[in-house]
Design a protein around this nucleic acid. Sequence first.
DNA 1: TGTATTTCCTATTAAATCGATAGGATTAAT
DNA 2: ATTAATCCTATCGATTTAATAGGAAATACA
Lengths: 137, 137
Amino acid sequence: MLSKKTKYGLKALTYIARKEGESPVRVSEIAESENIPQKFLESILLTLRKSGVLGSKKGKHGGYYLRHEPSEIKMTDVMRVLEGPIAMVPCVSLNFYEKCDDCPDEEKCSVNKLMIQVRDNTLQVFRNTTLADLSSI
Amino acid sequence: MLSKKTKYGLKALTYIARKEGESPVRVSEIAESENIPQKFLESILLTLRKSGVLGSKKGKHGGYYLRHEPSEIKMTDVMRVLEGPIAMVPCVSLNFYEKCDDCPDEEKCSVNKLMIQVRDNTLQVFRNTTLADLSSI
DNA sequence: TGTATTTCCTATTAAATCGATAGGATTAAT
DNA sequence: ATTAATCCTATCGATTTAATAGGAAATACA
């Protein structure tokens, strides 16, 4: 299940991308327009900023803006920041690998085999999708 | 993230499939061999039985057995029983559809578009994989 | 018939995670 | 100064997850 954090984050990024070129976008504006609790959205955009996807400007006329072109912001990066590992199981994660404590041999593990396939297919989608794709129409 | 329930369930099914033809397999045997808490596994196999994937026999020499050939047990079915919806978001779920309360128009929702792609790719894997595939090797 | 063995069922619990809120500190424009 | 925005930390309630507990029901077999 996709967390609300990720869902809200993606919607907010899309909203900002659609306004690109203009001045920074206020959290309150996004929250209202996308029906997202403002305080919650604040914390989400903060993590996106800390991860380098967004930039921010404080004070009056402040807000958030994209650090790169929408076409250069890949879903792999956004998803890893917001949702964490793309793999469904740590033992097949590329960026967050962890051995299963119950599993003596990954080579022989049926779950491992299956989840590698799922991971590869999901990765393909996220690698080939950018914020520009989400924002069009 | 894949729940332990699903992980354990898949491992147990694989274990049973590899023994097919023999008599029912005891929970305690699976639990020990696969490092799964026995009581937890009991409840998992119970739901698999209630959903029609497994059959069971009580009492001495009892245990669980597959109701169909491994090659006829599709991952779509098993995953839906153990993990629930395959889609990451209810608004793109085929079997568990639910409208988002915050989203006025699914057609224009960027998250919706993206998650449909992920769902379709994941579905393709699960539709083309059977328990026989998991059990081989 | 009785005993051991196994699934079946319900309830409970401890811990983790999630979604959200609260309250104020900091920064910047005017 | 005042206003408006992000930034930061802490906390809370609800839900879910993983696991445990305790026994009821059924079956094989002596």
